[in-house]
């Protein structure tokens, strides 16, 4: 038996249609986790414009000079794409929170039989909260 055959990571991604609830929950949780840590770095970078603002630096926003912090944030917020991304960020954060609560319950050994149902519940709730928040997030921005 000198030889054997390594099938590699068969099923891991090629068989995604056969994944069960717990597997999907893990994939989504991991994906949203990567997004959130990535966003945290971006977030601090943007907020760092406060240092320049405290220094008295100004930038031009719609023809008038405003401090660097206000200018940066309001400049970004006036972009349609940023608003869309923010809604995406909300969805990502809400799912990570809700599924995180589910995982905390699993860690405490509570309701393990219902782990698939609680995953579907967090998905649906995420959808509802996201859709309900769209008007608030899109307030006062043109295409």
């Amino acid at each position: 038996m000198s030889q054997s055959y390594n099938r590699g990571l068969i099923e891991d991604f090629g068989r995604w249609k056969e994944f069960s609830a717990g597997m999907w929950a893990w994939i989504f949780h991991k994906f949203t986790g990567w997004m959130l840590i990535g966003y945290l770095f971006t977030h601090i970078a943007v907020l760092s414009s406060a240092i320049a603002a405290a220094d008295g630096q100004t930038i031009m926003l719609e023809g008038e000079a405003v401090n660097a912090y206000t200018g940066t944030i309001q400049g970004l917020e006036s972009l349609f794409i940023i608003r869309v991304l923010e809604v995406g960020l909300l969805a990502v954060a809400v799912f990570h929170i809700l599924n995180g609560l589910r995982l905390l319950m699993v860690d405490l050994g509570i309701g393990l039989e219902a782990q698939d149902k609680s995953f579907y519940a967090s998905l649906i709730l995420t959808g509802v909260i996201t859709v309900a928040s769209v008007p608030t997030f899109m307030q006062g921005v043109g295409l």
Partner: peptide, 8 residues
Amino acid sequence: HAADVTFA
């Protein structure tokens, strides 16, 4: 609202 954030 995020769009109304100011330094002040």
